[in-house]
């Protein structure tokens, strides 16, 4: 166990020292580090759901989008201070999870994937057409960043460390949640619903709590995104963004919590390098995605386990 913990500590130390280690810190800390953390938290909400309920959701951007738009509208259009606008946004995003969960949790597998994708694309068309509220295709610009104790989080390093703190807190809480009896019951539901029903568990409330919790994470990520990009527009919740997120989750490892961050860091670096060679870097991302799906469906985090299994199989066959 200590070895595992030391790995985490090593990664943590690297993350903290990151802004002082990279060349071009202006670029890499913000467009590399902060971006990866924001995407990572969004992806985490997706892998939490996949890991604990066995459901692959493309609806996380819906929750992010709701909270992002509410931060943007309240702070830019109505001048609400972030102390009010941020909790309001996160609350609204989380509550929207109850509504969507009520419909989506009746379905499973591919249906769930399709339904959640349709939900996100529904928000996209709403954001595009409800010009009076969302300013349509233009979107909302100049979203102000919070200032706490005189620290302006618009600056590169404060924003990075704020995002790092948020990411670590959420990650740790997810880990904790999974170790509670609630977390164990969830895994039971994922593996065999009928058995859990027979054991006297009420399935839907369990699923609903997990789903709403993932909506909470996605809503927090939505606020992070609004502050990071300083703009929100319908494209922030479009099809390409949804697939991007899916790529991060799958490439990192959809059944590992840490996979979200591994995937996010990898994709951010991958795109930064590839786009120096071609403007069609999204195609390269797609190819990477397919290769991972075909060869290593458990993602990068799962590669060592996959090798171990393959070797055990070989050894077993040899005997």
């Amino acid at each position: 166990m200590t070895k595992v913990r030391s790995t985490y500590l090593l990664l943590l130390a690297m993350a903290i020292a990151f802004p002082y280690l990279v060349p071009d810190p202006d670029f890499w800390v913000s467009s590399g580090g902060s971006r990866a953390l924001w995407l990572g938290v969004t992806a985490l909400s997706m892998s939490f759901l996949n890991r604990n309920l066995g459901l692959m959701s493309l609806g996380q951007l819906f929750f992010s989008g709701i909270s992002g738009y509410i931060v943007a509208i309240s702070s830019v259009t109505y001048g609400v201070k972030f102390g009010t606008s941020v909790p309001l946004a996160i609350l609204a995003g989380t509550l929207s999870g109850v509504v969507i969960g009520f419909i989506a949790l009746k379905t499973k597998g591919v249906y769930f994937l399709m339904l959640t994708l349709a939900v996100t694309l529904g928000l996209y068309s709403f954001a595009n057409s409800a010009q009076e509220i969302t300013r349509g295709h233009t979107g909302i610009n100049s979203i102000p960043s919070p200032v706490i104790f005189g620290i302006d989080f618009a600056y590169t390093k404060p924003m990075y460390y704020l995002f790092l703190l948020i990411a670590i807190t959420i990650f740790t809480f997810c880990k904790f949640l999974e170790s509670t009896s609630f977390g164990i019951a969830l895994k039971g539901v994922r593996d065999n619903e009928d058995r859990m029903t027979a054991m006297g568990y009420r399935i839907l409330p369990l699923k609903m709590i997990a789903f709403v919790f993932s909506a909470l994470i996605a809503s927090i990520a939505g606020v992070m995104g609004a502050f990071y990009v300083t703009n929100i527009s319908p494209d922030s919740v479009g099809l390409i963004r949804s697939i991007d997120l899916l790529v991060i989750v799958v490439v990192g490892g959809a059944t590992y919590l840490g996979g979200a961050f591994v995937g996010a860091a990898l994709i951010v670096v991958f795109e930064a390098i590839v786009q120096d060679f071609t403007q069609y870097y999204v195609a390269a991302t797609g190819a990477l995605f397919i290769i991972v799906l075909m060869l290593a469906p458990q993602g990068l985090m799962g590669i060592s386990a996959q090798f171990r299994r393959a070797r055990a199989k070989k050894l077993g066959a040899a005997k």
């Binding site: 070895k3 595992v4 790995t7 990664l11 860091a265 990068l300 985090m301 060592s304």
Partner: peptide, 12 residues
């Protein structure tokens, strides 16, 4: 498994 994790951290 530990080796796996360290290897992974190294790769990242």
């Amino acid at each position: 498994q530990r080796i796996g994790r360290n290897a992974l951290a190294g790769v990242v």
